[in-house]
Amino acid sequence: MRHWPLFALRVTTPRLELRLPTLDDLDALADRAAEGVHEPGGMPFGVPWTDAPPDERARSTVQIHFRQWGTWSPDNWSCSFVVAWEGQIVGTQGMAGRDFAYTGEISTGSWLGLRFQDKGIGTEMRAAVLHLAFAGLGARHATSSAFVDNPRSLAVSRKLGYRDDGIEVHRRRDGAAQQQRVRLAREDWTARAGFEIHGLDPCLPLFGLPPRA
C-alpha cells in the first residue's frame, strides 16, 4: 500500500515474524485474547482489559489497532505488531514513540497468549522490536515497565540488559500497586544474529525520521 508502507514493515528472527496485522491476523489475535493471556486472578496490566468477557476482550483487541492506525502521526505513534510463530499468531508486541526524532526514546509493551508462554517467545519478540528501534531507527533508549508482582516481564527486561529506572505507584483494579520502570541504553544493547528488518526505508517519515538518501 503506497500511502501506508507500514503494512510491508516486518522484523524476522530465527523463529518469529513481527508485522502489522492483516484483518485475518487481527481475527487470530482476537482469538488469543479470548482464550486467555494470564492466569486467573492475576492482573499484569494497568488497564484491566482482560477482566472483560472473552467476546469483549476479542473486540477490544481489534479496536485498539484501528485506533492506533487512525491517530498515528510522526510526532506520536504506536506501532503494534502481531507475532507469528510456526504459522500461528501468538501475541502482540508494541513499540511507541512521542517526539521520537528529538528524544530518541521508545517504549514497549506486549502480551502473549497463555498457551504460548514459557517457550522463550516473549524474550525473542521484545528483542525483535529492540533491533528495529536501535539498528533500524537509531534509538538512544528503550523503556518498559511492569508491576513488581509480574516477575516474568521483569525477567525478560533484565535478560535483555535493561536497568532499573525507578518505582511508580498506580491504581490497579480497586487498589494501589507498585510498578518497576526499566531502561535500556543503546550502549547496553546487544545485537543478535539472525534478526532482520524488512521494508523500513519507506516508513521512516512516519516515524518522524528523514528518508534515507
Rank of each mutant, 00 (worst) to 15 (best):
Arg2Val: 14
Pro5Ile: 06
Arg10Cys: 02
Thr12Pro: 00
Thr13Phe: 04
Thr13Cys: 06
Glu17Pro: 00
Arg19Tyr: 10
Arg19Gly: 00
Leu26His: 10
Leu29Cys: 10
Leu29Ser: 04
Leu29Asn: 03
Arg32Trp: 03
Ala33Phe: 08
Ala34His: 03
Val37Ile: 15
Val37Pro: 01
His38Trp: 10
His38Arg: 02
Pro40His: 07
Pro40Lys: 05
Gly42Pro: 00
Pro44Arg: 13
Gly46Met: 12
Gly46Val: 14
Ala52Cys: 09
Ala52Glu: 14
Pro53Lys: 00
Pro54Phe: 13
Asp55Arg: 09
Arg57Pro: 14
Ala58Val: 01
Arg59Ser: 10
Ser60Val: 03
Ser60Lys: 07
Gln63Asp: 14
Gln63Leu: 15
Ile64Asp: 11
His65Gly: 06
Phe66Glu: 14
Gly70Ile: 13
Gly70Lys: 14
Gly70Met: 14
Gly70Val: 14
Thr71Cys: 02
Trp72Asp: 05
Ser73Glu: 09
Ser73Asp: 09
Ser73His: 12
Trp77Tyr: 12
Ser80Val: 13
Val83Ala: 01
Ala84Ile: 05
Ile89Asn: 08
Thr92Trp: 08
Gln93Ser: 05
Met95His: 03
Met95Gly: 04
Ala96His: 15
Gly97Ile: 15
Gly97Leu: 08
Asp99Pro: 03
Ala101Ser: 15
Ala101Trp: 06
Ala101Met: 09
Thr103Cys: 13
Thr103Pro: 11
Gly104Tyr: 04
Ile106Lys: 04
Ser107Gln: 08
Thr108Met: 15
Trp111Val: 01
Trp111His: 05
Leu112Tyr: 01
Gly113His: 08
Gly113Asn: 08
Leu114Val: 11
Phe116Arg: 07
Phe116Cys: 02
Gly122Ile: 03
Gly122Pro: 02
Gly122Phe: 05
Thr123Gly: 10
Ala127Val: 06
Ala127Phe: 04
Val129Arg: 09
His131Tyr: 07
Ala133Asp: 09
Ala133Gln: 10
Ala135Thr: 07
Gly136Met: 09
Gly138Ala: 12
Ala139Leu: 11
Ala142Gln: 05
Thr143Asn: 13
Ser144Trp: 03
Ser145Glu: 11
Ala146Gln: 07
Phe147His: 06
Val148Met: 13
Asn150Glu: 13
Pro151Gln: 12
Pro151Trp: 12
Ser153Trp: 07
Ser153His: 09
Lys159Gly: 15
Leu160Asp: 11
Leu160Ile: 00
Tyr162Ser: 02
Arg163His: 15
Asp164Gly: 12
Ile167Met: 15
Ile167Leu: 15
Glu168Gln: 13
His170Gly: 01
Gln180His: 10
Arg181Asp: 03
Arg186Leu: 11
Glu187Pro: 04
Asp188Val: 04
Trp189Gln: 03
Thr190Ser: 11
Ala191Gln: 04
Ala193Cys: 03
Gly194Ser: 05
Glu196Thr: 13
Ile197Tyr: 03
Ile197Gln: 02
Ile197Ala: 00
His198Phe: 10
His198Met: 09
Asp201Arg: 08
Asp201Pro: 01
Asp201Val: 04
Asp201Glu: 14
Asp201Thr: 02
Pro202His: 05
Pro202Leu: 05
Cys203Ser: 02
Leu204Trp: 11
Phe207His: 02
Pro210His: 06
Pro210Phe: 07
Pro211Ser: 13
Arg212Pro: 06
Arg212Tyr: 10
Ala213Val: 10
